[in-house]
Amino acid sequence: MAAGGDHGSPDSYRSPLASRYASPEMCFVFSDRYKFRTWRQLWLWLAEAEQTLGLPITDEQIQEMKSNLENIDFKMAAEEEKRLRHDVMAHVHTFGHCCPKAAGIIHLGATSCYVGDNTDLIILRNALDLLLPKLARVISRLADFAKERASLPTLGFTHFQPAQLTTVGKRCCLWIQDLCMDLQNLKRVRDDLRFRGVKGTTGTQASFLQLFEGDDHKVEQLDKMVTEKAGFKRAFIITGQTYTRKVDIEVLSVLASLGASVHKICTDIRLLANLKEMEEPFEKQQIGSSAMPYKRNPMRSERCCSLARHLMTLVMDPLQTASVQWFERTLDDSANRRICLAEAFLTADTILNTLQNISEGLVVYPKVIERRIRQELPFMATENIIMAMVKAGGSRQDCHEKIRVLSQQAASVVKQEGGDNDLIERIQVDAYFSPIHSQLDHLLDPSSFTGRASQQVQRFLEEEVYPLLKPYESVMKVKAELCL
């Protein structure tokens, strides 16, 4: 049975990233139509530049190519590739079939990587351009969430054990800070992308030097003109047959890092959902379990974690691919890159769409948070109580021993009897502590235990987050809708 299948058929496997999760716009960027249309555009740009620099290419040939950029006979191309065992030459023939007058000058002087690699770089750039505003929107939604809850005390956790208090907004800023680093890295790697350009079979530009009869300047002009037509500021000066596969490492490393950030955020949300302090959106008709109707599973956060793990592992592909590119190139890269580049971007696209949807509907339960604080705060307040007693004339050592005994009794009630923490009640009825009984409410005010959390939130948002989001103001209103 021949390899390949009808990918629109229910009898043929289709990647869930495309069929179930990723956005239509990201799927289109990695589609065959987008790819092969870009090949034709690159052939047109090459012909236009070659004509401008004096090669015998007519206006009629150029116009014929322009008129057929979208006229792609995919069936013919597939048949040609089956016959020739070469995808680029299959599309040269297919393009030439609908451009008979231009057929002889299509791909003039070029090698397969002229269309293959340059198209990949265009796709990487455009895919990054799709991700950047999506990530900015996630940051914006979380920034709104953090600002609104900047002063809401909550129990902090280290080692997932109760620690000092923080605020809900401050905790959210930990998430935002990681995503801001990801946004900066995505922008950097996007701006650092260079075009492969017009380089020939081993990167020496020998074929173009021959076409222009040894004119170095025209060869350099050709490279520059096509690079500018493709919208790049610069091209690699040095290439082998391909652009260095280190570029793929750079791009997928940034995406993998984004995956790590999203995994951490969504894990926190899942843990908070278990504590009943916070939940992701839950639709009115949504079913959490087929057997347990009360369940409210954090399905979206779980999906993000599941896909983020996949995204983090994909960076190993370009690392290994770059390491086995012998001399000017081997074909070890080809099949692998067809999979890992598309999957990385479709996965990143999915987790950003999902995280935006989550961040637009996060639900906080202040009463649950308050109750958990009441359970733990008495123990945390013991040092403040000791200091207040010393100020009232008591002995630190005597007070410490009193607190120690009462704390152990209260802990026994919590752990052995399943009761509430009654340390404060014990202190309130103990005559030894009568000098500070009137101060206990103040000493137990949760806001006095959150330090500068709310001020940190305000400063972080104003100095770091809002300036970073400013270039994306025009796209901030787009909502994230999930079908599944």
Results as ranks from 00 to 15, higher is better:
455 Q>G: 11
459 R>A: 05
402 K>V: 09
153 P>F: 01
277 E>R: 03
366 P>V: 01
419 G>L: 06
396 R>M: 10
128 L>M: 12
118 N>V: 05
235 A>N: 08
341 L>E: 14
230 A>R: 05
108 L>K: 03
171 R>N: 01
5 G>R: 13
388 A>T: 10
296 R>F: 08
169 G>P: 03
197 G>E: 12
46 L>D: 11
227 T>M: 07
134 K>G: 06
7 H>N: 14
3 A>C: 13
289 S>W: 00
346 L>R: 11
350 T>H: 13
271 L>F: 12
141 R>W: 10
318 P>C: 11
80 E>S: 01
421 N>D: 11
61 Q>C: 13
125 R>I: 03
26 M>S: 07
3 A>M: 15
195 F>W: 05
12 S>A: 15
400 H>D: 00
216 D>I: 02
356 Q>D: 09
269 I>D: 07
190 R>K: 07
319 L>N: 10
291 A>C: 04
261 S>D: 12
462 E>M: 12
355 L>G: 03
166 T>K: 10
201 T>V: 02
460 F>L: 09
195 F>K: 01
48 E>Y: 00
97 H>E: 11
21 Y>V: 15
461 L>G: 10
336 N>W: 03
163 A>C: 02
151 S>C: 02
56 P>S: 03
44 L>S: 13
464 E>G: 07
55 L>I: 11
203 G>V: 07
200 G>A: 02
484 L>A: 13
328 E>M: 03
95 F>G: 01
109 G>H: 13
294 Y>E: 10
2 A>I: 06
3 A>P: 11
22 A>C: 06
228 E>T: 07
395 S>Q: 14
194 R>T: 04
417 E>A: 08
394 G>Q: 04
350 T>R: 09
118 N>Q: 11
382 T>R: 08
86 H>I: 07
137 R>M: 10
483 C>A: 14
88 V>R: 10
200 G>E: 12
246 K>Y: 04
107 H>D: 05
389 M>K: 13
207 S>K: 11
260 A>E: 02
224 K>E: 00
181 M>K: 13
389 M>V: 03
368 V>M: 05
461 L>M: 01
215 D>F: 00
395 S>R: 10
8 G>H: 14
188 R>K: 06
394 G>W: 14
341 L>T: 05
317 D>A: 01
265 I>S: 09
154 T>E: 03
233 K>W: 00
357 N>H: 06
146 A>G: 02
